[in-house]
Simulated scan of single mutants.
Amino acid sequence: MAHTLEQLGRQEQTLAGIGGIVRTMKALAAINASPYEQAAQSIQAWQQTVDLGLRAFAFRMRGQALRGSAAVQGRILIVFGSDHGFCGNYNALQARAVQQWRAQRPRAQEVVLCIGARLQRALAEHGIDVARRLTPPASADGIGRLAGQVVTQVQQLAQGRPLDALEVDLAYTRREPQHGSVAQVTQLLPLAPQLLQAPQRWPGPSLPDFRMEPAQLFSALVRSHIFARVFRASAEAMVTENAARLALMQQAEQLVQERLEQVRRDLAGVRQDAITDELMDIVIGHAGGAGS
């Protein structure tokens, strides 16, 4: 289908505008990923401190039960996704990973806590109902807010039961050096056995001690454990989301550039044809005038 000079000119302007938008989004995705990556690294030290606190508590409470109940009294699944688009199949892959994980683990229905409106829609397509939905952080400063909200939601869903008697799992996308990113589900509660394993000898120069009532202290440590793990999972999820958006924008930039080059070639050809037609009209007109 032949295009006129005016049509090709409009296409060129439109593609140039789209290219500018894509470059801006690409730059934003690259810039946004860095603070989330720093946040994921910064929480690591606090997470290690909480883990050490749990081991210190276990050391002082040797021989005493650390769990309020031997049986799981409730199940919660926390899934991290996105509120914004232009990140490819990021949410679809996460929803599929959750569906596969649930299929391999027959169990009583767990309560699903979803982070992100687009992820909620992706989960619904796989028949997974969401009990509550939270908003992902808009910046690295918002990760702490989200982690605090998740702790509050878990406490509310526990309905007065001990937190350490719940089974809580985290589903998020983490970075993988060889594969870019991988959707995974990890167990948050019950606490891993190594976290409650008291060492035979305390490594420090003095024995750990506490003054709080043991049940209150253990509950506070469990809440801190949830906060630290959710904080890190949220930061990892935001890093991979921006990485997915960056990859998509790079692909879009290449496609727009290729299309723009083609339109400019077509535009140059149409202009050349127009100039040739004008020259031919002049030559024919001049020859006709001379012949008369």
Rank of each mutant, 00 (worst) to 15 (best):
D51S: 14
L123M: 08
A65V: 01
G81E: 03
A268I: 01
E12K: 11
S82H: 02
L66N: 04
G144R: 09
L221E: 03
H126E: 15
V239D: 06
Q120P: 01
A95M: 06
M25N: 14
L267V: 05
A228K: 02
E167W: 10
A95Y: 01
V98A: 08
D281A: 14
A40Q: 06
A198G: 07
I128G: 06
L77P: 00
S219H: 10
L207M: 10
L157N: 00
I284K: 12
V256S: 11
Q73A: 12
S139G: 15
V150T: 09
I128N: 10
G88R: 04
A16H: 08
L188W: 03
V150I: 15
H286G: 02
A287L: 14
A228R: 00
Q272V: 05
P190C: 07
R259N: 14
A198D: 08
Q153E: 13
V154S: 00
G85A: 13
G142S: 09
A71D: 11
L134M: 11
T4H: 05
L123R: 04
M1D: 11
A58G: 09
G285C: 08
H225M: 04
H84Q: 12
F218T: 05
D266A: 12
A165W: 05
A40D: 06
A274L: 11
A247S: 14
A268G: 07
R229V: 03
Q272T: 11
L189R: 04
L8Q: 04
S139R: 08
Q120Y: 00
A290V: 12
G285W: 06
Y90Q: 01
F218H: 15
V256Q: 07
L188I: 11
Q48M: 09
P162A: 01
M1S: 13
A97P: 04
L77F: 04
P136G: 04
G63P: 09
L163P: 03
P162Y: 00
R271M: 03
L196Q: 07
R175Q: 13
E261G: 05
R265Q: 15
S139L: 08
E278Y: 06
D169N: 12
A33I: 02
E125A: 14
G19W: 00
A220V: 04
L217N: 07
R60P: 02
Q13P: 01
D51A: 12
A33S: 14
R23W: 03
R75H: 09
G53R: 08
A27T: 15
R174Q: 13
S181L: 10
G53Y: 00
T276F: 07
P35R: 05
V150K: 00
H3D: 12
I76N: 00
A192L: 06
A103P: 02
Q149W: 03
E213D: 13
A198K: 09
R23V: 03
Q251W: 06
S224I: 00
A215Y: 06
D273G: 10
L146N: 02
G20Q: 14
S139T: 14
V239P: 01
V151E: 05
L191R: 00
V185Q: 09
G127S: 13
R133S: 13
Q44E: 15
L119Q: 05
E167K: 13
A237Y: 02
